[in-house]
């Protein structure tokens, strides 16, 4: 597929501020000749349907959070109790005393931020090049990059481990930052950025060129600032992926001070490998809640971001 394909009229590009009204306060156009009463009933039925559908999505998360306040025997009880009988915050204290959990939280946070920033830089540059710049072999190079989207991490973990070991970077955070930024995990980001830049209005670039800007100047001063929405989408995808990375940290890291959160969660076990359920679930809850809160705050921006990328076509 050539970069010119899928080009849309530039006017279709809404500015980040102009968003479609969402939610119950939005004015809804009156439709059809159906009497309002029947329509109200229909809408009530739809809301009820959503409530039903929400149960399997919400219950496990609820169980996780409420179980972190229970005793082990209550967690294992069948059928599960919905509320903790005598809730205690002790597991939350143990989370921090059993391991350097705050340090591990920081590790996960800074790795995820570094990966996110690095991925945005690499993906925006490459996505821009593949979408807007004509150079010999561009398509072939794009295909090489795209292959990364098709490789499960289990497939390449052994050769990658050998590479990291040869470079002496075992038990450092380098492989967890450099490989995601440059390797397979960033390919989706490159793809999203490319799809975004394909729809980018050529007139703006032309104007920049007339002003004597170099390619880099056009990218840095015109294209990238206008890509905020696509960058937002890439940032959220990338952050979540890094935050939840499991196999790689376990393989690459060995000392507790270097652990990341998903790996640290596996360490809340008793002397014989049996999980200390309430502490483990308390720690899990601590890792989930902030991400959920960020999503609640940023969701509108996030969905707008996605709506404005080439992902919608």
């Amino acid at each position: 597929m050539s970069p010119d394909q899928l080009t849309k009229p530039p006017t279709a590009q809404p500015s980040p501020g102009a968003r479609r009204p969402v939610g119950r306060h939005s004015p809804r156009p009156r439709r059809g000749k159906r009497p309002p009463r029947a329509e109200h009933l229909g809408r009530a039925a739809l809301v009820f349907l959503m409530v039903l559908l929400a149960v399997p999505f919400v219950f496990p998360t609820w169980w996780m959070a409420s179980s972190s306040l229970k005793t082990t025997s209550e967690i294992l009880r069948i059928p599960p109790t919905v509320w903790a009988e005598s809730p205690t915050l002790a597991p939350y204290r143990d989370v921090f005393t059993l391991q350097p959990f705050a340090q591990q939280y920081m590790n996960s946070l800074y790795i995820a931020v570094a990966v996110t920033i690095g991925t945005i830089a690499v993906a925006a540059l490459a996505g821009y090049a593949f979408a807007r710049i004509r150079f010999p072999g561009a398509n072939a190079l794009f295909v090489i990059v795209l292959i990364g989207m098709l490789v499960p991490s289990e497939v390449t973990i052994v050769p990658l481990f050998r590479m990291v070991n040869t470079l002496g970077l075992i038990d450092t955070h380098w492989p967890l930052i450099v490989i995601p930024v440059l390797g397979a995990p960033s390919v989706l980001a490159t793809f999203i950025m490319r799809q975004f830049f394909i729809t980018f209005p050529g007139e703006l670039e032309e104007a920049g060129r007339m002003d004597g800007l170099t390619r880099f100047g056009i990218f840095a001063r015109i294209a990238f600032p206008l890509a905020r929405s696509a960058v937002a989408a890439v940032a959220i995808f990338t952050f979540l992926k890094s935050w939840n990375l499991y196999l790689e940290p376990i393989v690459y890291l060995s000392s507790k001070e270097n652990f990341t959160l998903p790996q640290a969660l596996t360490q809340y076990v008793d002397a014989y490998g049996g999980p200390i359920w309430n502490v483990q679930l308390a720690a899990t809850t601590l890792t989930v809640i902030p991400v959920l809160i960020v999503f609640v705050i940023a969701q509108r921006q996030f969905i707008q971001g996605l709506a404005n990328t080439g992902l919608k076509g």
Binding site: F135, A138, V145, G148, T156, S186
Partner: peptide, 18 residues
Amino acid sequence: YGYLFSAPAVLGSLAFVI
């Protein structure tokens, strides 16, 4: 510029995927 911009992604792909 095309090569320079795409270099990190392409070389990264060669090193860590291909």
